[in-house]
Design a protein around this nucleic acid. Structure first.
Lengths: 178, 178
DNA sequence: GTCGCTTGGTTCAAATTGGAACGAAGCCAG
DNA sequence: CTGGCTTCGTTCCAATTTGAACCAAGCGAC
């Protein structure tokens, strides 16, 4: 690697847009959720995932994976949510080590309460800002990025080359009807 | 607002892709920079901005604004960087209250050292994953999002409607040649 | 001039985060 | 079955991050 392939004008523009836009959007949502529902975005996403799950419950690791967060971080958040009565822990029958995080009725209520404002915010910050085509393009591009990083993630750390074929896409919503 | 406008299939897909992709990318970069250069992404961006600035210096507020971070957060990071000798504080001649953060020679060296690996990572995580068209679309879409949120930000909190016309776009790079 | 309001940065406390270390369990080959 | 390796969550600790409170200094109107 003599001289790295620096970003050209367009690439740089894309990268800058990515950085600032994501920061701004996250900031916006964080604020909205905190103000209107007293939840952090992470907590909201936990509720969304659990609410959408089969029995309103998911294993800790699975959940951490979906949220793209660390295991310890999740442990912390689940504890908080449990303390608030929105989620409860349940042990796994088939695996003593396992722990299920399960959304409570109160958790579902809070989610139902918070959802409208959140969707509204998501629309204002991202969805409604773009034309349908732009949105499609965005979904395709970022979807591809996700797939790429996910496979790379699963296939252990091979020296920075690319992974293989596709993986399944995302699952639960995020701003969908609760 | 009777029933909120929930996201349809495509919108949901876009939103999910946005959430996961951004998390994954950030995670990736954070890790790479920490491992290879001992810098957090925030710190790296500080150096980038200062390095690209006119005199290698920027006012605290201006910098916080560009990084889309809180003032207190920046104060913290600048203190860290100063401690590490990569940045130094300089008072502003025209405004006693003002403080300039200025990149040091050592700061520039560290940046030069870290840049190649960072660009490489940015390419692997985002740029090279997409086709040129996808990249263009992405830049346009997210650029629009940025503009929107920036203006909304500047024009005080008017009840969630949209802002006016365009603002100037971003400035310093992020993964450009240092 | 000087009162009142906005700005620029820092300080402070509280909430999160992530990685490393751990203990308890699964799991598989020999 | 038993040693050796992986997996599951939690605990612990250090690093960040953010908003609120604060002090000092500009700034404009009176």
């Amino acid at each position: 690697m003599t001289e790295p392939r620096w970003l050209d004008e367009g690439e740089r523009a894309a990268w800058i847009a990515f950085l600032t836009a994501t920061n701004l959007v996250n900031r916006k949502l964080e604020q909205q959720l905190k103000d209107d529902a007293g939840l952090s975005h992470t907590q909201y996403e936990v509720l969304v995932q659990l609410n959408a799950a089969a029995d309103g419950a998911l294993r800790m690791t699975e959940l951490a994976d979906r949220l793209v967060t660390s295991k310890s971080g999740l442990t912390y958040q689940i504890t908080q949510l449990e303390r608030a009565g929105l989620v409860s822990r349940r042990s796994c029958p088939s695996d003593v080590r396992g722990v299920f995080a399960e959304i409570t009725e109160r958790g579902r209520e809070v989610l139902r309460f918070a959802a409208p404002g959140h969707v509204e915010a998501v629309r204002n910050a991202l969805i409604d800002v773009l034309t349908p085509e732009q949105l499609t393009h965005l979904a395709e591009g970022l979807g591809e990025v996700t797939r790429r990083l996910r496979t790379e993630q699963r296939c252990g750390a091979q020296t920075a080359t690319q992974g293989g074929t596709a993986t399944q896409a995302a699952s639960g919503a995020g701003a969908g009807r609760p």
